[in-house]
Design a protein around this nucleic acid. Structure first.
Length: 306
DNA sequence: ATAAGGCCTAAGAG
DNA sequence: ACTCTTAGGCCTT
């Protein structure tokens, strides 16, 4: 086992691990007590993930396929344990090198956003592996965050590689080929409902090489969103989530039900009728380059009822 | 290009 | 206990 420690006071803007991993951005981590989204974690709770063969495209720092990574916060440090030297991967997955203070300072000075930034200080965006993120958000349609996490965990358990580490079994999220072996009937049986055929068909598209979500990374933002909608089960909203949470498009502003209510109440002039036009208007209002950070704080603030 | 209607399912509200 | 609504929408017509 390899281990390491990263002092949190060396991270500009700090780190709130709980809010980063349980704010509906990533569904690819597990908490040691298995109670994500239902109870707040005990101090020092471990979170784990497996960096699989879909590892962070375009990032040579990612750990090799099949590596388990565990992280927790204790005594002002982010501690990690892994099958490999995971510090570069940890920094990447949790975006520890983002200058969070500067990002917060760059946002617009409106009451809702300031309140959200203040209430959830230290929450960072995540950088998920593209394929796992894509499937996660196909599953997210009309679904509560706790159940999305259950669905994604089930897919890992049923179709992903098993990896032993420190006496425990971990499950990698399935590769496109592994997930493409699933049938619609199986996935319905596993509780995915009408999303089942979407997941199978999208996994097949990636497995056969017809398309890959990482391809979008090379495109301009709105072209990238358009590209992702070729996957079955992916509309504008899901595409924006993948761009924001896996492909480094910090300007992406997913318009979900929470953001739509925020527009109604706080940014009514940004409602331009269509998704593309409203998204563009809100992106400008929320600070352009880092509008997605603002979106994530507003989403989490409203969703947690604060 | 834009607008309805249908869709799996379980937790929460009434 | 039951029914109704809702939950980070998408696909088809």
């Amino acid at each position: 086992m390899e281990t390491g420690t990263i002092p949190i006071d060396e991270l500009t803007g700090g780190l709130d691990l709980y809010r980063t991993l349980e704010s509906g951005q990533s569904y690819l981590w597990q908490r040691e007590d298995g109670e994500m989204y239902t109870e707040t974690p005990a101090p020092g709770a471990w979170y784990s993930t497996v960096v699989g063969s879909d590892a962070v495209s375009g990032n040579s720092d990612a750990a090799a396929a099949g590596d388990v990574i565990r992280v927790r916060v204790r005594d002002g440090n982010l501690e990690w344990e892994s099958t490999t030297d995971a510090e570069p991967a940890v920094r990447r997955l949790l975006r520890l090198d983002d200058d969070l203070e500067a990002i917060v300072a760059a946002g617009p000075d409106d009451s809702l956003l300031r309140e959200a930034y203040e209430a959830h200080r230290g929450m960072r965006l995540v950088a998920d592996p593209p394929f796992g993120c894509l499937i996660s958000f196909i599953c997210s349609a009309q679904m509560r965050v706790g159940r999305i996490h259950t669905m994604v965990s089930t897919l890992a358990r049923e179709y992903g590689d098993k990896i032993e580490f420190d006496g425990e079994t971990y499950h990698a999220f399935p590769t496109p080929k592994q997930l493409a072996t699933a049938t619609e009937a199986e996935l319905r049986e596993l509780g995915l409902g009408y999303r089942a055929p979407y997941v199978v068909r999208t996994a097949e598209m990636v497995a056969t090489g017809e398309a890959h979500p990482a391809e979008a990374q090379n495109l301009e933002y709105e072209d990238a969103r358009e590209y992702l909608t070729r996957f079955v089960g992916v509309g504008d909203k899901v595409a924006d989530c993948v761009l924001l949470f896996a492909l480094d498009f910090d300007e992406a502003v997913p318009l979900d039900t929470w953001l739509k209510s925020a527009i109604e109440e706080y940014y009514p002039d940004c409602d331009r009728g269509t998704y593309a036009d409203t998204s563009r208007a809100l992106r400008e209002r929320l600070g352009g380059e880092y509008a997605g950070y603002s979106q994530t704080y507003i989403f989490h603030h409203l969703r947690t009822g604060a």
